[in-house]
Structure formats: C-alpha cells, structure tokens
Amino acid sequence: MTAIEGLPVTVAAGIDPTMPPGPGGRSTASGVATTRRRGRASRVMAILAIMWLGLVLVLAIGADLLPLAPYDAPVGGPRETPGLRLHEPLGTDAIGRSQLSRAIYGARVSLSVGILSVLLGLAAGGTLGMIAGYFGGKLDAVIGTLNDSVLAFPPLVLLLAITAIFRQSLPTLIGSLAVLSTPSFVRLARAGALSYKEREFVIAARSMGASHARILTRELLPNLMFSLLSYSFLIVAVIIVAEGSLSFLGLGIPPPTPSWGGMVATGRDYLATDPQLVFTPAVIFLLTVLSFNVLGDRARRRFDTRASALS
C-alpha cells in the first residue's frame, strides 16, 4: 500500500511548482522566526493592498454614480497636466478627455476581465484537474495532453490568434484569457486531487456508498478550495497584465472604451513631452497588480500553515 500512497506525492511534486508542500515537510526553528518577522511586514502590505483594491473596486463599481466627466468626450484642452485641483486632478489625455474618468472606467475593464476570466478558468480548470487527478488513467492522459498543448503555445500568440478569429469585444477578451488561465488551475487541482484521493476520509466516504460525483464535490473540492482560491489572486494579477498587454497592442477592448493598457498605448507617442500620460495609468496598473500579488502570496502562506497543521 505504501507504494501506492507514495505515488501521488512524487507525481505531484514532479509536475507542479505551485503544489502546496506535502504534510510534514516544513519549517525549522529559524524558519519560523523569519516567517514571523516577514509576517508583520506582510500584514502592513496586505492592509495597504486591501485598501487600494477596495478603493479601485468601489470607484469602478460606483463609476456611474460619481460626478465624473464622460470618458469619451473632451472636457478641456489636450494634455493638461495633473495637479492638486478639483477639476480634473489627473489632467487630460491627448485629445482632452478626462484622465480620471478614463482611469476609473478603465478599472472596470481591467478588473472585470481579470476577475471574470479567472473565475471561468478556475471553474473549468478546477473541474478538469480534479477529474484528471481523481480518475487517472486515460482521462488523465487526455486532459494532461490537452493541457500541455495549451501551455506549450506562446500565450501572446494564442491571444493574437483568438482575437484575430473572433470579433474584438469584452466577451472574447474574457473568454480567451480564461483559456489562458485554465492550465494552471488544471495542474493545481490535479495535484491536489492526487494527494487527497487515497486519504482515508475519501475511502471512508466510499465505504458509506458515496458516488464519484459526490466524492469529488463533497470530499475533494472543500479541501482543494483553499489552494485554488489563494492561487486565483496571483492569476488575476497575471491576467490583468495580459489584458494590459493586449490593449497596448490594440487587440483589447475597442476604443473609445478606456482600459489601462490602451491608455498607456495612446500616451506612448507623447512620452518625451508629456510622460504623465503613460505614467498615470501605469502607476495605477502597477499598484493594482502588486496588490493582487501581495494578497495572493499572503493567502497562499495562510493556506500552507493550515495544510501543515492538519498533518
């Protein structure tokens, strides 16, 4: 039996660097101390990250209720510089549209694309990965091969291909980025399912007459949820960057709908004379991605301590 139980661990460790460490394989005494010190600093970072994301989220959701200038019509002269004033504190873009309004409406695009496509990827990848890991055999081979071929494709080329085939729109963008985020979830869920499927509580559930579907949803899923959700934060950051790159290349959301990547792209021409056109959206972008990363890291660490405490 030991050989059988040992197998999933080695397979999982061999395949996925995102795999949470196995039970019992963790910290030494000095490791605990550093973790604690890092913990305090990261708590401050996490609070700042939550504050920033909260602000962006509230502004993005409530954009229609705010007294904002329209994002698609000029409100002043072109390239007004930002300043401490009530009227257009972030200045205007190349054709005089409100930068503040465009940044906030841009947040809608970036966040909805980031979050929705990751949720889709999580659902699809989580399901496929759990099925592959739990049933193994041919099903695992088929899903694994498909997954590897998506991964083997250069992501940008894949995105370019998808946006070339389909009409440029928000659903297309979300769909293609969901495809891109799926493989990591497949791997994570597969590795998790492999490490849990031989556990005694799964065998106990089977001895109680539970069907495969029931075991997958009721026994395995609750155990995998922690790692999948905490990993989602990191993937949201990656996807927001991908969306920015696509918009920068002019393959994202069609204008005049603003997006951060698009704002950077149009501001690029004035980089020498008016760097704030690139700088403003870029900083907002950076802070948002950083916040997601900080939260994702923290969530993952929390999940790790849970895992090691349970063993």
Binding site: E200, F201, A205, R218, E219, F226
Partner: peptide, 10 residues
C-alpha cells in the same frame, strides 16, 4: 485512524 478518516474541512 480517526485523525484521517474524517474530512478536515467539512
């Protein structure tokens, strides 16, 4: 082993 035969997160 009741430590492992119950699902820890349910």
């Amino acid at each position: 082993d009741p430590m492992t035969s119950l699902n820890p997160v349910v």
